[in-house]
C-alpha cells in the first residue's frame, strides 16, 4: 500500500481538509501533492503551508493510505466523500469526519467532533476516543441518515447518535448521550455502556441494544426476554429484555436492554 502523510506543523483557527483523502490524492505527482489546496477560513492555501507532506500516493484510492499526524480538533471535514483506501488520523479532529463516505476505512486515534459518518453509505470508521453529537445521523433537513457501513467508537458518544439511521451498524463501547437512535428507521446500534434520556424516541424499525443502564420511555412496550443475542456473528450474553416501540410513531423497533 502506498502512503502519504501530512504532519500538522502550523496551527490555524480552522482548517478544512476535505481534499486530503485517498480519492483526491491518488495519482498525484510529488509536485502536485505539495500544491494540494485546503481551506483555511475563506482562503484556499496549499496543504504544505500547514502540513509537512511526505510519501507517494498510489494509482487508485484503494491502494492509498493517507495519514494525518499530530491532528487537532480545529481540523474539519477529513475523509468527506471518501470511496476507498485508508485515512489514519493521529490525534483528535473536528466535525463531519467521513461524512457521506461510500467506502474505505477511517481510523482516528483521539476524539472526534459532531456529525461523524453523517449519511455514510458504506465503509468503516473507527474512533479510539470519544465522539460528539449526531454520529451516523442525517444532515439538517434530510430524513435519511447513515444507510450502510460501520462506525465503532471506543469511548463515549454525544447526543442524537444514529438519528434517522437507515442501515449499517454503530457500536459504542462507552456510554451514549441523550436521544440515542432517535427516529431510527433501520440498522443496528449497540451501546456497551449506559444510554441517556429518551433512548429510541420516534424509532420505527431497526434495533438498539443497551448493555448498561437506560430509562425506558413510557411509549415502549415490553415484549419478551432473550438469553443471548447474535449481532453480526458476535454473541452477547443476556438475559435481555426486549421493548417494542416507539408507540408514538406506531413503531416496530426493537430495544434490547440487558437485565
Amino acid at each position: 500500500m502506498y502512503q502519504v502523510s501530512f504532519k500538522l506543523k502550523k496551527e490555524a483557527p480552522r482548517l478544512e481538509i476535505d481534499t486530503l483523502t485517498p480519492d483526491c490524492l491518488c495519482l498525484c505527482s510529488a509536485e502536485e501533492l505539495k500544491s494540494v489546496k485546503i481551506w483555511r477560513g475563506k482562503k484556499e492555501v496549499p496543504a504544505s503551508e500547514h502540513f509537512e507532506v511526505k510519501g507517494e500516493p498510489g494509482p487508485t484510492p484503494e491502494e492509498t493510505m493517507v495519514v494525518i499526524e499530530n491532528c487537532k480538533p480545529f481540523v474539519h471535514y477529513a475523509g468527506m466523500f471518501m470511496s476507498g483506501g485508508i485515512l489514519k488520523i493521529k490525534g483528535s479532529c473536528g466535525n463531519y469526519i467521513g461524512s457521506r463516505m461510500t467506502g474505505g476505512l477511517i481510523e482516528v486515534e483521539g476524539n472526534v467532533g459532531d456529525m461523524v459518518g453523517e449519511e455514510m453509505k458504506a465503509g468503516k470508521i473507527v474512533v479510539k476516543g470519544n465522539a460528539g453529537n449526531y454520529l451516523g445521523s442525517a444532515w439538517w433537513g434530510d430524513t435519511t441518515g447513515m444507510t450502510g457501513g460501520q462506525i465503532v467508537v471506543e469511548g463515549n458518544v454525544g447526543e442524537m447518535c444514529g438519528q434517522w439511521m437507515e442501515g449499517g451498524y454503530i457500536r459504542v463501547k462507552g456510554n451514549a448521550g441523550d436521544f440515542l437512535g432517535v427516529k431510527q428507521v433501520r440498522g443496528i446500534i449497540l451501546v456497551e455502556g449506559d444510554a441517556g434520556y429518551c433512548c429510541g424516541a420516534g424509532m420505527t424499525y431497526g434495533r438498539i441494544l443497551v448493555l448498561g443502564n437506560v430509562e425506558i420511555l413510557p411509549t415502549y412496550e415490553p415484549d419478551g426476554t432473550y438469553e443471548q443475542l447474535d449481532i453480526l456473528d458476535e454473541i452477547f450474553k443476556g438475559p435481555f429484555q426486549l421493548y417494542k416501540g416507539d408507540g408514538a410513531e406506531d413503531g416496530k423497533g426493537d430495544l434490547y436492554v440487558r437485565k
Binding site: A201, G202, I216, P218, T219, G247, A248
Partner: peptide, 18 residues
C-alpha cells in the same frame, strides 16, 4: 419531549407503561 411523545402515543390509542 417525553410528554409530547406520550401525547402522541395516546392519540394513536396506545396504552402507556407509566
Amino acid at each position: 419531549f417525553e410528554l409530547m411523545l406520550a401525547l402522541r402515543a395516546l392519540l394513536r390509542g396506545k396504552k402507556l407503561q407509566k
